[in-house]
Nucleic acid binder design. Structure first.
Lengths: 118, 118
DNA sequence: CAGGATCCAAAAGGATACTG
DNA sequence: CAGTATCCTTTTGGATCCTG
């Protein structure tokens, strides 16, 4: 079972906060987001967990971290890679499934959902 | 965040073993599977967890439990509902994503994967 | 600002034994 | 066969404080 692709893939993206981080990176016009910006947007995520998840996602290639050393203190920016953007499509499919079968009349059904951002 | 459709949907299907149970119910010709049959196929899942997951999935409407009282002891059979089968498509999308971006040359890529069953 | 380091509480899941 | 009931270990993640 440990060899199963589905299993291994879930290990990458199945942890708490992970898909919300991806979603947050997908939102809005400006695609690069900074650490504290994500922290703020994600409500009550602790820096420890956010840091852990960002590292995992970077190691797995779904996001990239870019550090701008020209400022002090240096600023980090995170953004989705191609595979990360591709995975967002699956999150959107999950959302569609949820709307279809389970949570029919939610805010989320609106064109621009404040949570998921179509 | 608790109101987010993605969040709520992940609460339904994001727990350990859940998608493997769905996958197992999707495999093979015979679509109805019994408790101990699932237990055996899923390797080392404990009856407690299997029982929990099956109950959750039934409550959420992804599977149906049918009890045949004519035999003794009565036998239970589990099978996917329409929404459950619809969700399997997402699992397959997850698998495709994994194969495309992460785990390129696995057993899983074969036409019939012993784990995921295309 | 962008985290790292500790410490701790809670939850999740595993092992095992038992039962109608 | 189809689970329940206990007990216990391990894993998570949250709270908080600290720093270059």
């Amino acid at each position: 079972m440990k060899d199963c692709t589905v299993y291994k893939t879930m290990n990458i993206i199945g942890k708490r906060w992970t898909i919300h981080i991806l979603l947050e990176l997908h939102k809005g016009e400006k695609k690069e987001k900074r650490f504290n910006e994500l922290k703020r947007k994600l409500g009550n995520i602790t820096p420890k967990i956010l840091s852990e998840r960002l590292m995992e996602l970077e190691v797995e290639g779904l996001i990239t971290k870019k550090v701008d050393d020209s400022t002090k203190p240096p600023r980090s920016e995170y953004y989705l890679t191609e595979s990360g953007m591709d995975f967002v499509k699956i999150i959107q499919a999950i959302k569609r499934w949820g709307l279809k079968w389970k949570f029919q009349d939610e805010e989320c059904k609106r064109a621009i959902c404040m949570y998921c951002d179509h």
